[in-house]
Design a protein around this nucleic acid. Sequence first.
DNA 1: GCGCAGTCGGGAACCGGTTCCATTGGACAA
DNA 2: TTGTCCAATGGAACCGGTTCCCGACTGCGC
Lengths: 339, 339
Amino acid sequence: MSAIADVARLAGVSKSTASRALSGHGYVSRETRSRVERAASEIGYVPSSIASSLATGLTRNVGVVIPFVNRWFFAEVLEGIESALITAEYDLTLYRLHDDAERRQRIFDYFLARKRVDAVIAVGISLSAHEVRSLNSLGKPIVGIGGDVPAISTLSIDDASASRFLTEHLVSLGHTRIMHLGGDQHEQMDFAVHARRLAGVRDALAATGLSHSHDFRAVAYSIPGGYAGGLAVLSDPSHRPTAIVAGCDEIAIGVILAAHELGIDVPSQLSVVGIDGHVLADMFGLTTLEQHPTTQGERAVRLIMDRLSPEGSQLDNERITMPVDFIVRRSTTAPPRAS
Amino acid sequence: MSAIADVARLAGVSKSTASRALSGHGYVSRETRSRVERAASEIGYVPSSIASSLATGLTRNVGVVIPFVNRWFFAEVLEGIESALITAEYDLTLYRLHDDAERRQRIFDYFLARKRVDAVIAVGISLSAHEVRSLNSLGKPIVGIGGDVPAISTLSIDDASASRFLTEHLVSLGHTRIMHLGGDQHEQMDFAVHARRLAGVRDALAATGLSHSHDFRAVAYSIPGGYAGGLAVLSDPSHRPTAIVAGCDEIAIGVILAAHELGIDVPSQLSVVGIDGHVLADMFGLTTLEQHPTTQGERAVRLIMDRLSPEGSQLDNERITMPVDFIVRRSTTAPPRAS
DNA sequence: GCGCAGTCGGGAACCGGTTCCATTGGACAA
DNA sequence: TTGTCCAATGGAACCGGTTCCCGACTGCGC
């Protein structure tokens, strides 16, 4: 209720001086400033961010567009973003992008266009050229996490080399019947992550002459998905792979559980590797390639802040590849002899 | 860039008429309205929500205060809230409340006070009397999910009867050595959920004369927490319980995994029940009491919207108990004979 | 024919900050 | 002493909508 005009009146100065005193911009004498500050705290003045935004054109608010919040990777990224934004004194407005095309359209055309946000972070979403254009035309920086989008800055791990590396690891252990359980290639809204991880596996297999036709099965990107896929793939002993490259740790964990269920020992009868660095990976002894989603979120915020800074408007788009860590646990070993 | 004044000029009317035509408030002739609408779409006019908020005092934005986004319950609630808010054409601004008291203070005093949000939903956070007062004094509706807070509307399941019911179920199966693995009673920011669930178990045990001193162990509220606690509690055969009431499904799943690890069969040697209705409960055959966090989120939004409606300002605070569903799966049965 | 109700539209004030511009007075150099 | 520079401050415009108030016009009842 109390506005800056009240503060000014109480301090016996003009609105403009009060504003300068509180914001620290422009010349104000030491004495006047402290008088204004006293007046402000006396009446419990809190500036209206709305009014400030209208006057300055800056909202100190970043929009985050994300397809899920209840999946490990996305939740972790979100935490990283949130924490970095709070530190920078920015708000975070969350838009969950549903599969529903009409809702997606509405979020871009209606919600993001209304000058509510200074910038947008898109997590795991492949923006269309039209969506990028419409955001760019508003002059808002955009950063994408999880894959490449033309014309914006992006941040991701190198999915193809990740899965290639893991496959090569299994090959080097002596495995010859390696299979990939990954996401559906045609799933909505992904950044072609599924396709790139599959391609990495196939690259590695082809390079060592191990290509075969039953090298892939599409499963849901979750523990139950990996479990179901694992049961399907492992239950026929004659065609059973000796090693599985999972598209993510959750799938890998599902596969390990399925193996337990079927009495298949991991790793002596089956090696399993994942990608992610999921919280549960350690508990299941899963060998994995850790990406650090929280760090990715924080890094994305830094990119945004750079571009929001006064000199930042002319920065080029960056395409950043984030580092991964290979963590060997007990889910991988050489294949069984009598293969 | 294009403001309503541009639309007005193009349509040959005044700003006020343009505003009336586009917002639908006040008298505008059919013909004028369509002329304004044509002009607006011609120049791609999108109203500035900032300016509109400043003029009306309404932001169409709801603040959500939540301690985690990477835990199942919280993520589900958040999804429910988000989806209901988008449908109501409201934005969602996310504030993650860290354990850090100073940051928490800052969120309440600095972020939430600046007229950025019309209402607040607090998930799983026990607001202090001071926090409630400061929000109430801004005239913003508040709804809490997950427990009771005086002076605001709240929404939760009845935790004590939930765990009492589950314990009674185990008792009715014949179990006499029942143990509760739940959350730390002194954990920050909870709604005393941990304490209430423990109390429910103890009530039930006391009612059947089964009280004993080793009836509880505090563990982390997660699968690894349940796993570690399970290993600790189950490894000594002489003191091993025949049934465990877990504080949540994640703990229960951890216990089941620990039992597998130790070669203890579930349910023939150990019965396990959880609370939640976690996505993984089905996969692990877990008997549980399902709460429906998404529905809770949606319901909270409805409460907020009721209070935000013109007639809603005088609504009383409500204390709503949400329904739960008892789902019996294969993790519970009668205790082993030779107990 | 007059008055009143109801429709339509314009002008201006307003929401609450920020910032440009002009003014003043003091310090300091010439 | 006079001119210049700069710190300090006030007044007013401005951001982009919304809404109050008022005047004009139409149609209708008396």
